[in-house]
């Protein structure tokens, strides 16, 4: 079987490595998929904070606000960067401009 495949012309075989741009695009997609997981992890952290019912030293609300809004802003910034990167990728590659051509 393998011998038969090796005899195929070179052009038919899919190349092992993608072009640099396609590679970057795929990693961008990975980042887009990971982002909500990161977000979920960040908003799950408050679950670990001490509650006033169980301990004397509670978490001050100002710190909680600071943490949550900082994370929130961070996620928005990453999403913004991804949005722009995706737009640039789309614009720079007309042949694959259709987003449905992208791996999903």
């Amino acid at each position: 079987m393998t011998a038969g495949e090796e005899r195929k012309p070179q052009g038919v075989r899919p190349s092992l490595f993608l072009e640099r741009q396609s590679y970057r695009r795929r990693r961008l997609m990975d980042a887009a998929r990971l982002l909500p997981i990161l977000g979920a992890a960040l908003v799950a952290i408050p679950l670990l904070w001490p509650s006033p019912n169980t301990s004397d030293e509670g978490m001050p609300l100002s710190s909680a606000i600071l943490y949550i809004f900082t994370c929130w802003a961070l996620l928005i910034v990453i999403s913004l960067i991804f949005g722009f990167a995706a737009r640039r990728m789309t614009a720079s590659d007309d042949s694959e401009a259709e987003s449905d051509r992208w791996p999903h």
């Binding site: 509650s51 006033p52 609300l61 710190s63």
Partner: peptide, 16 residues
Amino acid sequence: MDRIDASEIGQWNVDA
């Protein structure tokens, strides 16, 4: 921020 911490809701108190 000081006022928030000093208020009656000044501590993290959210049921998991």
